[in-house]
Design a protein around this nucleic acid. Structure first.
Lengths: 215, 215
DNA sequence: ATATCGGATTAGACCGGTCGGTCCAAGGCG
DNA sequence: CGCCTTGGACCGACCGGTCTAATCCGATAT
């Protein structure tokens, strides 16, 4: 088969880049791990950087599969699909030993110095946020989110918070920060929104519209 | 003076570790940047790792100065002090060129592989969260936060979200993700809480207590 | 005021090891 | 046969770290 060796390298890269990051991962270690001679590596990839970029592509196809399964689940209300996506992601983290998100890891490590990785990883995040925003927009139109909600901004907000929780999870090897985020956004805040909607008629204004002054 | 050279190395390390991370920062580059011979470096530090750990200590003293200025500001209500801390941090990020948080960067890069850094950085986060939790607890006792609030959990939640926003800021070189977090937590959510408190008598239960089932 | 002494610091040549990458000959297989 | 792929020796550069001689500089003695 043409791509067994290449696939084997990419699969190993997925795990090794997640654990060790980019600069700490030597080509030799990757070759030893997979039992591949160096000639094969440089036959399939033009450089270490090219390799890592392809690993990111592979990572993203998996993320998209997760999004397909969650965002496309018509049996759930829109907000439920978003929550499902993050729960699936949390379960994936568990199977990796709670090492967090590879995009977050590589983004932190490389984006201060390497423009190619910086823009690619930022693009990945914006794509994911875009798909989540679609779900949120559907929720908004159904009246399950305040009508003035900026779906795209909210999707990015949640995704960013998730990445922060993923970092903390990597530091503690514990899923608690992930669950805290899920609980907060999809239980507490949602309840507060519902509360607001329910009591809307009995209060003065409508929108929180960035209540100024007091914190 | 005894510590001019050492201080110069640590100061440069603060910037260079933030930008390049740990593994991409060579000793030689640090020495060239500061005009220091190698003998001096290894006179003051036992290894590169020791050096980086001392840089983290330096970073933390700066963070504590920020906390002192914000958390200790008695002219502000407790929640205002927390917000002030993050605003000050955001301003510091700006002066660094929006490269995010060094602890987040090193944490992501190293915690998959190096136990010393992993535990040290996690400890740093827990310390910061602890000081913020003190402020939140004061707010709770004053009735500015729901009485059932877990101050420590909330402090960690906000801090984690902040770190996620800092990553995104590093990726985009833009402060917008930071401002989004501040707006959300200290304007929107606060408004929702106030809304709830105001309308509490007119609704059924009290606590959102993790409303199950629906998202 | 000056000489001298001794630990702290500087200076940089040097080390073995590993890095990412090159090259080409030897398989494997249609 | 011809071509994609493997195998691995080999390369210069650079890595973190060691070592020793030179130098600085305040304390002390005279």
């Amino acid at each position: 088969m043409v791509h067994t060796t290449k696939q084997r390298l990419l699969d190993a890269g997925l795990n090794m880049l997640l654990q060790r990051g980019y600069n700490d991962l030597g080509i030799q270690a990757l070759l030893a791990e997979t039992g591949t001679p160096k000639g094969s590596f440089y036959h399939h990839f033009s450089s270490k950087e090219d390799f890592a970029l392809e690993v990111i592509d592979l990572y993203m196809t998996q993320v998209h599969m997760g999004l397909d399964a969650a965002v496309g689940d018509q049996t759930l209300p829109p907000l439920g699909r978003v929550r499902k996506f993050f729960e699936m992601t949390r379960d994936k983290y568990r199977s990796d030993g709670y090492l967090g998100c590879m995009l977050g890891g590589l983004g932190q490590e490389l984006s201060g110095v390497n423009e190619v990785f910086r823009s690619k990883i930022e693009w990945c995040f914006s794509v994911v946020a875009g798909r989540l925003a679609g779900c949120l927009e559907e929720a908004r139109l159904r009246g399950e989110l305040p009508p003035e909600t900026d779906s795209s901004a909210l999707a990015n907000l949640i995704l960013n918070c998730w990445e922060g929780a993923a970092l903390r999870t990597r530091l503690t090897r514990d899923p608690a920060p992930l669950d805290a985020i899920l609980d907060f956004y999809f239980s507490e805040v949602t309840a507060l929104y519902n509360n607001k909607v329910a009591g809307a008629a009995s209060t003065n204004g409508m929108r929180p519209d960035h209540a100024k002054g007091e914190v």
